[in-house]
Design a protein around this nucleic acid. Structure first.
Lengths: 148, 148
DNA sequence: CTTTCTGCAAAAGCTTTGCACTCAA
DNA sequence: TTGAGTGCAAAGCTTTTGCAGAAAG
């Protein structure tokens, strides 16, 4: 996909700039993890990314995955959410959307809400410097609803 | 506080109705946990509630605390949020507000946003039945911001 | 009485930490 | 050369699970 390839290039540059600005080392692991993160569909967990990399024959330690994902969050490239499962999930910080999370089966659905989420970040909260937002609506999905 | 006492009475009734409707047992533990939950300030964790009960000389097992908090969520009495810490936090489901979470020190600040949060629950999402929402704005609090 | 709920302790996950080694700068 | 970054394994936390015993209905 041509679109995705150019997006990766953009994000690689963004990461490089961030690391340069903060005097960090540009290791191959970090770029590899970034690439796999973009490749995965939205909302991947740590294990999912780890396994995907193993599957692709590229080995990194879990600790490095954790470290790098945190780094990518700080660089503004990824957003980190925690839904009902006590398990961090990451996604590339592109469009603004909110998450519908089923409290029964855990299924997550995205809904575009650009206005809503944009507003959260531009609102002037006294003495607070927003980076990104996480909006979750908990409820029951239709499938589970019908079963009860 | 008279206001709080009547609120507790209201919530006790709400819990009773819910348990009756679902053919559940009305155990003293459940009412005791509800009462302590209302007593605590917003955003308590499981341990915080557990310790508060121990301190008050009322012993319940951790498992029961977990079970009951989940029950209270289902009854619509509590809302459950997970912020950056991988630790569930609960609050009595009263006013609508969002949460400003500092990614550095973990401090949580509430901001009233009745319109915003109300809208999340009334929006017509296809095939989804909303119960409550959790809006988090991650960023850096002023205190941490000045240190860097 | 019966079946749900509780208590206790062990197990299960996810994430963090410590330390030796590696490699980007 | 040197200290930040990585790998590995152990430790730490929160949460879940299993089972025996208690008690609500």
């Amino acid at each position: 996909m041509q679109t995705q390839r150019s997006e990766i290039q953009l994000l690689r540059n963004q990461l490089t700039e961030f690391m340069q600005a903060n005097h960090m080392r540009k290791t191959p692991e970090r770029y590899a993890i970034l690439e796999k993160a973009v490749e995965l569909s939205a909302h991947f967990g740590v294990d999912q990314l780890y396994n995907a990399m193993e599957g692709a024959g590229y080995h990194v330690s879990k600790a490095t995955v954790y470290n790098t994902l945190e780094l990518l969050c700080q660089a503004g490239i990824l957003n980190r959410h925690i839904f009902a499962t006590n398990q961090a999930r990451y996604e590339v910080a592109r469009g603004s959307h909110l998450h519908l999370v089923c409290r029964r089966c855990g299924k997550i659905r995205e809904v575009d809400e650009p206005d809503l989420t944009a507003r959260l970040l531009t609102d002037a909260y006294d003495e607070f410097h927003p980076e990104y937002s996480s909006t979750i609506v908990y409820g029951i999905c239709d499938e589970c609803y019908r079963k009860s």
